[in-house]
């Protein structure tokens, strides 16, 4: 207790205390630490002078630079839009056909479209736009509402069965649930529908198919067309190809007929700018081309 010693290794004196065998050296604080502290403090004070920092009552110091993050981000978004306008202004102005003719513009469409599609559409239509159960494949030539960029743009803007006042509306009636067709008839139509896209399927009963054909003409053709190739006026799908929204097996088709379907595609009018929607429409058309 209370005896000071010189530590042989460092040459510094101890503080004279000992706690359970632990002693401390009274080594002075190295100058470099004060210097280091001074540097950080000077940096801090400089920052405080330039930037908004200290609260005072009902307001705060604004700083000499008058910086404001909200203003900054608004500026940088605006500036970025301006920088992009070399190409984006042309996309905004020109017709789809003209844009498609310009490979440089289409490069920008492809670059921009990928992430835009990935962040907004891929959740439903998949990263490669090939859809999934309940969500249509967008890389095929068979479109519910038409595959021109104009039609796609319109679909994106108003959505399908969405909350938009001008939404595209479509409804596959619930023939079973609503008692429009008895179970046995539905069976027959299912057989007929399957025969359209899989004419060689082994388990199809030709008498059912024949009966289904008549039922189809009476109940379905008004929407899906005489030869079941669909109708882009009312979003009725083509039933003769290999592409299905809800599945082309007997079980899925039967469920579709029994419960009806009303797919919901959101409107993007308030979420994506007109430019973005235009880009996406072109991107999808281009995707189909690239696929072929």
């Amino acid at each position: 207790m209370g005896h000071f010693e010189r530590d042989p290794h460092t040459g510094h004196m101890t503080t004279g205390h000992e706690w359970n065998g632990i002693t401390e050296l009274n080594t002075p604080v190295p100058k470099v630490i004060w210097l280091f502290l001074a540097c950080t403090v000077i940096f801090a004070i400089g920052y405080w002078i330039l930037m908004p920092t200290w609260p005072i009552g009902r307001t705060y110091t604004k700083g000499l630079l008058g910086d404001d993050v909200r203003h900054d981000v608004a500026q940088s978004v605006k500036q970025a839009a301006l920088d992009r306008s070399v190409w984006s202004a042309r996309i905004e102005k020109e017709s789809f056909a003209d844009i498609q003719k310009d490979p440089r513009l289409m490069d920008a469409v492809r670059e921009t479209g990928r992430a835009l599609f990935g962040d907004n559409c891929a959740a439903c239509h998949g990263r490669n736009a090939q859809g999934g159960k309940g969500f249509p494949n967008l890389t095929t030539s068979s479109w519910l509402w038409g595959g021109t960029p104009e039609a796609i743009f319109q679909t994106l803007t108003v959505g399908i069965n969405s909350a938009h006042p001008d939404t595209r509306t479509s409804q596959m009636p619930a023939f079973g649930k609503d008692g429009m067709l008895p179970r046995a008839d539905i069976d027959k139509v299912v057989a007929f529908v399957r025969s359209l896209s899989q004419p060689n399927a082994k388990d199809l009963d030709p008498t059912k198919v024949a009966a289904g054909k008549e039922l189809f003409a009476a109940n379905c053709a008004s929407c899906h067309g005489e030869n079941a190739t669909g109708n882009t006026e009312m979003g009725a799908p083509n039933l003769t190809d290999a592409f299905w929204i809800y599945g082309g097996d007997a079980q899925s088709i039967e469920t579709t007929l029994w419960n009806g379907r009303q797919g919901h595609m959101p409107t993007w009018e308030n979420r994506l700018s007109e430019l973005d929607r235009k880009i996406l429409a072109l991107y999808l058309v281009d995707l189909r081309k690239a696929d072929k």
Partner: peptide
């Protein structure tokens, strides 16, 4: 960069930098 007022962020940042000194000590 959140909805927390910027002045609080400035304080947090500058004090974090000064904090390095005692931490390293």
């Amino acid at each position: 960069y959140t909805a927390l007022p910027q002045w609080v962020q400035s304080l947090g940042m500058t004090f974090s930098v000064m904090l390095l000194v005692p931490s390293w000590v």
